[in-house]
Amino acid sequence: MDAQLKKGILEMCILYYIEKGTMYGYDIIQNMHNYFPEVSESTFYAILRRLHKEGAATTFKGEVSKGPSRIYYKITEEGRTQLEQLRTDWKDLQNIITEMGI
């Protein structure tokens, strides 16, 4: 698959996933990897990090009973807008493909 197209899709999936609720980074990565087994975990981590840097997601530390504190991810308003945009784009693309009969 085209790298750019794939990245857009992965980004949308991650945003959709954290929109459903606050998530621990490791869980996001593992769940995404279950859906896309051919994409390495590190790719998801890199995308997650970028989303955080761009302001689409915020992080905060959560204490765990044993071990070091964990970093959780949460979607921001900016992220929601971005997700809506991606959804629309993706639906448009789907419509075009269906219309063409591919």
């Binding site: 390495s40 590190s42 981590y45 890199a46 995308i47 990090r49 970028r50 840097k53």
Partner: peptide, 11 residues
């Protein structure tokens, strides 16, 4: 190395 490459692609 590949982890670093992925991070560079996204940064």
């Amino acid at each position: 190395k590949s982890v670093a490459d992925r991070l560079l692609e996204e940064s």
